[in-house]
Simulated scan of single mutants.
Amino acid sequence: MIEGNQTLDLELLRTFQVVAQTGSLAATAEVRHRTLSAISMQMKRLETELDVRLLERNSRGVSLTPSGDVLLREARELLRVHDTLVSRFSGERLSGRVRLGIPEDYARELLDDTLPQFMARYPGILLDVTTDTSGRLARALRQRKLDLAVVLDHATGLEGGETLWHPTPVWAGPVQGALHREAIVPLAVHPEECPYRHLATGALDSVQRPWRAIFTSTSIHAVEKAIETGMAIGVLDRERVTTAMRPLDESDGMPPIRRCVARLHFAQAIEVGSQPAVEALAQLLRERLHGRGPWQRDALSERDIGNKKGRPGQGGTKDRD
Protein backbone atom coordinates (compact mmCIF):
# COMPACT_ATOMS: atom_id res chain seq x y z
CA MET A 1 0.00 0.00 0.00
CA ILE A 2 1.28 3.50 -0.88
CA GLU A 3 1.71 5.59 2.26
CA GLY A 4 3.15 8.97 3.16
CA ASN A 5 5.41 10.40 0.48
CA GLN A 6 5.67 7.18 -1.54
CA THR A 7 5.27 7.53 -5.30
CA LEU A 8 3.87 5.20 -7.94
CA ASP A 9 6.17 4.10 -10.77
CA LEU A 10 4.71 5.44 -14.01
CA GLU A 11 6.27 2.58 -15.96
CA LEU A 12 4.02 0.21 -14.01
CA LEU A 13 1.03 2.25 -15.17
CA ARG A 14 2.26 2.19 -18.78
CA THR A 15 2.54 -1.59 -18.63
CA PHE A 16 -0.87 -1.85 -17.00
CA GLN A 17 -2.36 0.29 -19.77
CA VAL A 18 -0.99 -2.07 -22.43
CA VAL A 19 -2.27 -5.11 -20.50
CA ALA A 20 -5.73 -3.56 -20.44
CA GLN A 21 -5.53 -2.87 -24.17
CA THR A 22 -4.27 -6.29 -25.26
CA GLY A 23 -5.96 -8.46 -22.62
CA SER A 24 -2.81 -10.56 -22.56
CA LEU A 25 0.42 -10.55 -20.56
CA ALA A 26 2.18 -12.33 -23.41
CA ALA A 27 1.13 -9.70 -25.95
CA THR A 28 2.11 -6.96 -23.49
CA ALA A 29 5.57 -8.49 -23.16
CA GLU A 30 5.98 -8.29 -26.92
CA VAL A 31 4.77 -4.70 -27.12
CA ARG A 32 6.85 -3.55 -24.14
CA HIS A 33 9.94 -5.55 -25.23
CA ARG A 34 10.19 -7.38 -21.93
CA THR A 35 9.91 -10.98 -20.84
CA LEU A 36 6.58 -12.48 -19.79
CA SER A 37 7.89 -12.99 -16.26
CA ALA A 38 8.95 -9.34 -16.05
CA ILE A 39 5.47 -8.18 -17.08
CA SER A 40 3.86 -10.54 -14.58
CA MET A 41 6.12 -9.22 -11.80
CA GLN A 42 5.28 -5.63 -12.72
CA MET A 43 1.58 -6.31 -12.41
CA LYS A 44 2.03 -8.08 -9.09
CA ARG A 45 4.10 -5.15 -7.84
CA LEU A 46 1.41 -2.67 -8.93
CA GLU A 47 -1.30 -4.65 -7.15
CA THR A 48 0.87 -4.87 -4.04
CA GLU A 49 1.61 -1.14 -3.99
CA LEU A 50 -2.06 -0.26 -4.42
CA ASP A 51 -3.23 -3.12 -2.19
CA VAL A 52 -5.97 -4.06 -4.64
CA ARG A 53 -6.61 -6.77 -7.20
CA LEU A 54 -6.52 -5.30 -10.71
CA LEU A 55 -6.55 -8.33 -13.02
CA GLU A 56 -8.48 -11.56 -13.34
CA ARG A 57 -7.07 -14.48 -15.34
CA ASN A 58 -9.37 -16.34 -17.72
CA SER A 59 -9.17 -18.77 -20.62
CA ARG A 60 -8.47 -15.96 -23.11
CA GLY A 61 -5.88 -14.06 -21.09
CA VAL A 62 -6.64 -11.45 -18.45
CA SER A 63 -9.47 -9.02 -17.80
CA LEU A 64 -9.83 -6.00 -15.53
CA THR A 65 -11.53 -6.11 -12.16
CA PRO A 66 -13.81 -3.19 -11.22
CA SER A 67 -10.82 -1.63 -9.45
CA GLY A 68 -8.77 -2.18 -12.59
CA ASP A 69 -11.39 -0.31 -14.64
CA VAL A 70 -11.14 2.66 -12.27
CA LEU A 71 -7.34 2.63 -12.33
CA LEU A 72 -7.27 2.46 -16.14
CA ARG A 73 -9.32 5.65 -16.45
CA GLU A 74 -7.16 7.47 -13.91
CA ALA A 75 -3.90 6.11 -15.35
CA ARG A 76 -4.73 7.33 -18.84
CA GLU A 77 -5.30 10.86 -17.60
CA LEU A 78 -2.19 10.83 -15.38
CA LEU A 79 0.04 9.59 -18.21
CA ARG A 80 -1.46 12.12 -20.62
CA VAL A 81 -0.71 15.02 -18.26
CA HIS A 82 2.77 13.65 -17.53
CA ASP A 83 3.68 13.16 -21.19
CA THR A 84 2.39 16.60 -22.15
CA LEU A 85 4.47 18.22 -19.41
CA VAL A 86 7.62 16.32 -20.30
CA SER A 87 7.23 17.02 -24.00
CA ARG A 88 6.68 20.73 -23.38
CA PHE A 89 9.82 21.21 -21.32
CA SER A 90 12.17 18.48 -22.52
CA GLY A 91 15.09 19.23 -24.82
CA GLU A 92 13.90 16.66 -27.36
CA ARG A 93 10.79 18.17 -28.89
CA LEU A 94 9.35 16.48 -31.92
CA SER A 95 7.82 18.67 -34.57
CA GLY A 96 6.63 18.32 -38.12
CA ARG A 97 3.39 17.27 -39.75
CA VAL A 98 1.84 13.79 -39.83
CA ARG A 99 -0.98 12.96 -42.24
CA LEU A 100 -2.72 9.84 -40.95
CA GLY A 101 -5.43 7.83 -42.64
CA ILE A 102 -7.73 5.47 -40.71
CA PRO A 103 -10.77 3.43 -41.75
CA GLU A 104 -14.02 5.18 -40.85
CA ASP A 105 -15.20 2.03 -39.05
CA TYR A 106 -12.49 2.45 -36.40
CA ALA A 107 -12.34 6.24 -36.12
CA ARG A 108 -14.48 6.51 -32.99
CA GLU A 109 -12.33 4.10 -31.00
CA LEU A 110 -9.04 5.67 -32.08
CA LEU A 111 -10.34 9.17 -31.36
CA ASP A 112 -11.45 8.12 -27.87
CA ASP A 113 -7.94 7.54 -26.61
CA THR A 114 -5.02 6.84 -28.93
CA LEU A 115 -4.91 9.99 -31.05
CA PRO A 116 -5.62 12.40 -28.15
CA GLN A 117 -2.81 10.66 -26.27
CA PHE A 118 -0.43 11.26 -29.18
CA MET A 119 -1.38 14.94 -29.40
CA ALA A 120 -0.87 15.36 -25.66
CA ARG A 121 2.50 13.63 -25.75
CA TYR A 122 3.76 15.61 -28.75
CA PRO A 123 2.09 19.05 -28.80
CA GLY A 124 4.65 20.29 -31.34
CA ILE A 125 3.45 17.89 -34.03
CA LEU A 126 0.71 18.90 -36.44
CA LEU A 127 -1.61 15.92 -36.86
CA ASP A 128 -3.97 15.72 -39.85
CA VAL A 129 -6.40 12.78 -39.78
CA THR A 130 -8.46 11.49 -42.69
CA THR A 131 -11.11 8.78 -42.42
CA ASP A 132 -12.29 6.86 -45.47
CA THR A 133 -12.61 3.38 -46.92
CA SER A 134 -9.41 1.34 -46.94
CA GLY A 135 -9.26 1.38 -50.74
CA ARG A 136 -9.38 5.16 -50.90
CA LEU A 137 -6.85 5.47 -48.09
CA ALA A 138 -4.53 3.16 -50.01
CA ARG A 139 -4.86 5.34 -53.10
CA ALA A 140 -4.15 8.50 -51.08
CA LEU A 141 -1.06 6.81 -49.63
CA ARG A 142 0.22 5.92 -53.10
CA GLN A 143 -0.43 9.49 -54.22
CA ARG A 144 1.59 10.74 -51.21
CA LYS A 145 -1.40 12.57 -49.78
CA LEU A 146 -0.89 10.59 -46.55
CA ASP A 147 2.26 9.70 -44.62
CA LEU A 148 0.82 6.80 -42.69
CA ALA A 149 -2.37 4.76 -42.88
CA VAL A 150 -4.12 1.86 -41.18
CA VAL A 151 -5.91 -0.16 -43.86
CA LEU A 152 -7.57 -3.55 -44.23
CA ASP A 153 -5.93 -5.84 -46.75
CA HIS A 154 -8.75 -6.35 -49.28
CA ALA A 155 -9.40 -4.00 -52.19
CA THR A 156 -6.34 -1.87 -51.40
CA GLY A 157 -3.66 -2.95 -53.85
CA LEU A 158 -0.94 -2.27 -51.27
CA GLU A 159 1.96 -4.64 -50.77
CA GLY A 160 3.62 -5.44 -47.44
CA GLY A 161 2.74 -3.39 -44.40
CA GLU A 162 2.97 -4.27 -40.70
CA THR A 163 0.26 -6.51 -39.27
CA LEU A 164 -1.56 -4.78 -36.41
CA TRP A 165 -4.56 -7.00 -35.73
CA HIS A 166 -6.96 -9.47 -37.34
CA PRO A 167 -10.48 -8.03 -37.58
CA THR A 168 -13.42 -10.39 -37.10
CA PRO A 169 -15.94 -9.66 -39.88
CA VAL A 170 -19.36 -11.26 -39.44
CA TRP A 171 -22.74 -11.12 -41.15
CA ALA A 172 -25.11 -8.93 -39.16
CA GLY A 173 -28.87 -8.61 -39.47
CA PRO A 174 -31.69 -7.08 -37.41
CA VAL A 175 -32.87 -8.96 -34.34
CA GLN A 176 -36.29 -9.47 -35.88
CA GLY A 177 -37.05 -10.75 -39.36
CA ALA A 178 -35.34 -13.00 -41.87
CA LEU A 179 -33.87 -10.71 -44.51
CA HIS A 180 -30.99 -13.13 -44.91
CA ARG A 181 -33.35 -15.75 -46.36
CA GLU A 182 -34.77 -13.55 -49.11
CA ALA A 183 -34.21 -14.66 -52.70
CA ILE A 184 -32.21 -11.51 -53.42
CA VAL A 185 -30.19 -10.59 -50.34
CA PRO A 186 -30.59 -6.87 -49.44
CA LEU A 187 -27.24 -5.38 -48.43
CA ALA A 188 -26.22 -2.28 -46.49
CA VAL A 189 -22.65 -1.50 -47.52
CA HIS A 190 -20.00 1.16 -47.96
CA PRO A 191 -19.13 2.34 -51.50
CA GLU A 192 -16.64 0.54 -53.73
CA GLU A 193 -13.09 0.16 -52.41
CA CYS A 194 -14.39 -0.90 -49.00
CA PRO A 195 -12.93 -4.27 -47.92
CA TYR A 196 -16.07 -5.26 -46.01
CA ARG A 197 -18.19 -4.61 -49.10
CA HIS A 198 -15.88 -6.92 -51.07
CA LEU A 199 -16.09 -9.54 -48.31
CA ALA A 200 -19.90 -9.46 -48.37
CA THR A 201 -20.37 -9.51 -52.14
CA GLY A 202 -17.55 -11.97 -52.68
CA ALA A 203 -19.02 -14.43 -50.18
CA LEU A 204 -22.45 -14.27 -51.83
CA ASP A 205 -21.00 -14.52 -55.34
CA SER A 206 -19.00 -17.60 -54.30
CA VAL A 207 -22.25 -19.50 -53.62
CA GLN A 208 -24.13 -17.84 -56.47
CA ARG A 209 -26.63 -16.06 -54.24
CA PRO A 210 -28.15 -12.95 -55.83
CA TRP A 211 -27.73 -9.72 -53.88
CA ARG A 212 -28.62 -6.05 -54.20
CA ALA A 213 -27.01 -3.09 -52.43
CA ILE A 214 -30.15 -1.29 -51.33
CA PHE A 215 -28.32 1.04 -48.90
CA THR A 216 -24.89 2.54 -49.59
CA SER A 217 -23.17 5.06 -47.34
CA THR A 218 -19.68 6.21 -46.41
CA SER A 219 -20.86 6.42 -42.78
CA ILE A 220 -20.52 3.28 -40.66
CA HIS A 221 -23.20 4.64 -38.33
CA ALA A 222 -25.66 4.97 -41.23
CA VAL A 223 -24.88 1.41 -42.34
CA GLU A 224 -25.43 0.17 -38.79
CA LYS A 225 -28.75 1.99 -38.55
CA ALA A 226 -29.90 0.46 -41.83
CA ILE A 227 -29.20 -2.99 -40.38
CA GLU A 228 -30.76 -2.27 -36.98
CA THR A 229 -34.00 -0.96 -38.51
CA GLY A 230 -34.44 -4.00 -40.74
CA MET A 231 -33.65 -2.44 -44.12
CA ALA A 232 -30.80 -4.78 -44.94
CA ILE A 233 -28.04 -7.04 -43.68
CA GLY A 234 -24.33 -6.38 -43.92
CA VAL A 235 -20.83 -7.35 -42.87
CA LEU A 236 -19.45 -5.61 -39.78
CA ASP A 237 -16.61 -6.14 -37.38
CA ARG A 238 -17.98 -8.39 -34.63
CA GLU A 239 -17.31 -5.63 -32.11
CA ARG A 240 -19.79 -3.37 -33.89
CA VAL A 241 -22.73 -5.79 -33.63
CA THR A 242 -25.16 -4.04 -31.31
CA THR A 243 -27.97 -5.46 -29.18
CA ALA A 244 -30.39 -4.39 -31.95
CA MET A 245 -28.64 -6.79 -34.33
CA ARG A 246 -27.74 -10.45 -34.38
CA PRO A 247 -24.74 -12.15 -35.98
CA LEU A 248 -25.57 -14.54 -38.83
CA ASP A 249 -23.55 -17.56 -39.91
CA GLU A 250 -23.74 -20.77 -41.91
CA SER A 251 -26.52 -22.10 -39.67
CA ASP A 252 -28.60 -19.19 -40.95
CA GLY A 253 -27.76 -20.06 -44.54
CA MET A 254 -25.11 -17.38 -44.95
CA PRO A 255 -21.80 -18.19 -46.68
CA PRO A 256 -18.55 -17.99 -44.69
CA ILE A 257 -16.61 -14.74 -44.83
CA ARG A 258 -12.91 -14.54 -45.62
CA ARG A 259 -10.64 -13.28 -42.87
CA CYS A 260 -8.77 -10.02 -43.29
CA VAL A 261 -5.84 -8.22 -41.72
CA ALA A 262 -5.42 -4.62 -40.54
CA ARG A 263 -1.99 -3.37 -41.51
CA LEU A 264 0.08 -0.24 -40.97
CA HIS A 265 1.49 1.25 -44.17
CA PHE A 266 3.95 4.11 -44.75
CA ALA A 267 4.12 6.38 -47.78
CA GLN A 268 7.05 5.68 -50.06
CA ALA A 269 8.37 9.20 -49.53
CA ILE A 270 8.00 11.22 -46.31
CA GLU A 271 9.36 14.70 -45.71
CA VAL A 272 12.69 14.46 -43.89
CA GLY A 273 11.61 16.90 -41.20
CA SER A 274 8.50 14.87 -40.45
CA GLN A 275 10.04 11.40 -40.37
CA PRO A 276 10.65 11.34 -36.57
CA ALA A 277 7.08 12.50 -35.98
CA VAL A 278 5.66 9.87 -38.34
CA GLU A 279 7.67 7.14 -36.62
CA ALA A 280 6.52 8.35 -33.19
CA LEU A 281 2.88 7.98 -34.22
CA ALA A 282 3.58 4.63 -35.85
CA GLN A 283 5.13 3.37 -32.62
CA LEU A 284 2.13 4.46 -30.57
CA LEU A 285 -0.22 2.74 -33.03
CA ARG A 286 1.85 -0.44 -32.73
CA GLU A 287 1.66 -0.30 -28.94
CA ARG A 288 -2.07 0.39 -28.82
CA LEU A 289 -3.36 -1.74 -31.70
CA HIS A 290 -1.06 -4.77 -31.83
CA GLY A 291 -3.00 -8.01 -31.60
CA ARG A 292 -6.41 -6.66 -30.56
CA GLY A 293 -7.05 -3.49 -32.54
CA PRO A 294 -8.71 -0.38 -31.10
CA TRP A 295 -11.32 -2.16 -29.00
CA GLN A 296 -11.17 -1.69 -25.24
CA ARG A 297 -11.96 -4.70 -23.06
CA ASP A 298 -14.26 -2.56 -20.91
CA ALA A 299 -16.16 -1.12 -23.89
CA LEU A 300 -19.05 -3.58 -23.56
CA SER A 301 -20.85 -4.93 -20.54
CA GLU A 302 -21.19 -8.63 -19.88
CA ARG A 303 -24.88 -8.26 -20.75
CA ASP A 304 -24.03 -6.92 -24.20
CA ILE A 305 -21.49 -9.67 -24.75
CA GLY A 306 -24.01 -12.32 -23.81
CA ASN A 307 -26.53 -10.91 -26.27
CA LYS A 308 -24.16 -11.37 -29.19
CA LYS A 309 -24.72 -14.77 -30.74
CA GLY A 310 -21.63 -16.92 -30.87
CA ARG A 311 -19.38 -14.13 -29.66
CA PRO A 312 -15.98 -15.64 -28.74
CA GLY A 313 -14.72 -12.69 -26.77
CA GLN A 314 -13.55 -9.29 -27.91
CA GLY A 315 -11.95 -10.29 -31.17
CA GLY A 316 -8.30 -10.49 -32.12
CA THR A 317 -5.83 -12.93 -30.70
CA LYS A 318 -6.57 -15.46 -27.98
CA ASP A 319 -3.33 -15.51 -26.05
CA ARG A 320 -3.15 -17.54 -22.90
CA ASP A 321 -1.06 -16.19 -20.02
Rank of each mutant, 00 (worst) to 15 (best):
E77V: 07
I227C: 03
L285E: 04
T243P: 09
L264K: 04
N5T: 12
L36C: 03
P191R: 06
S59R: 15
D304I: 09
R57E: 11
S87Q: 13
E228K: 05
V62K: 00
G202C: 11
V261I: 14
L71M: 02
Q176C: 06
L199V: 04
F16V: 03
T156A: 04
S206Y: 10
A155P: 07
P169T: 04
D83C: 05
V81H: 13
V272T: 15
P186R: 02
Q268G: 11
V62W: 00
E239T: 05
R88Y: 08
L94M: 07
E109W: 03
H82C: 06
M254S: 04
T22G: 00
E77W: 08
R139P: 05
P210N: 08
L100P: 00
R311Q: 10
L289A: 00
R32E: 12
P276V: 01
R181C: 12
V272Y: 14
L12Q: 10
D147A: 01
S301V: 06
F215D: 11
T163E: 14
L284S: 06
A107E: 08
T48P: 02
D304K: 12
T84K: 14
D249G: 12
V150I: 15
F89K: 07
L72Q: 08
I233C: 07
T28N: 06
L64Y: 01
D249S: 09
L148R: 05
G68Q: 03
E30P: 01
D237K: 00
A188L: 03
L36W: 09
K225S: 11
G316P: 05
V129I: 14
R259L: 13
R212V: 09
R238V: 04
G291K: 03
S274W: 03
I227S: 01
A277K: 00
V81W: 12
A178W: 12
I305V: 10
L78G: 03
M231I: 07
A149N: 09
L64D: 00
R14M: 05
P276R: 03
Q21T: 00
H198C: 07
L164N: 01
S63I: 08
C194W: 06
E162A: 01
P116R: 07
N58F: 10
A178D: 15
T168S: 14
P169N: 06
V151C: 12
N307A: 09
R303D: 13
D112Y: 14
W211H: 14
Q6Y: 13
D298R: 05
M119G: 10
E182S: 11
G315W: 02
Q208P: 05
S37Q: 14
P247I: 03
Q143K: 14
F266D: 03
A140Y: 13
L25R: 12
D252I: 02
S87G: 15
P116I: 02
V235H: 02
Q296D: 12
P276Q: 06
L236W: 01
A213Y: 06
V175H: 11
P256C: 06
W165K: 01
D321I: 01
S206N: 15
F118N: 01
V98D: 05
D298M: 03
A178P: 10
G234S: 13
R60M: 12
P116A: 06
A269S: 11
T156F: 02
G291F: 01
A232E: 04
S206C: 08
E159H: 14
I2P: 08
L137M: 06
L137I: 02
R240M: 09
I184G: 08
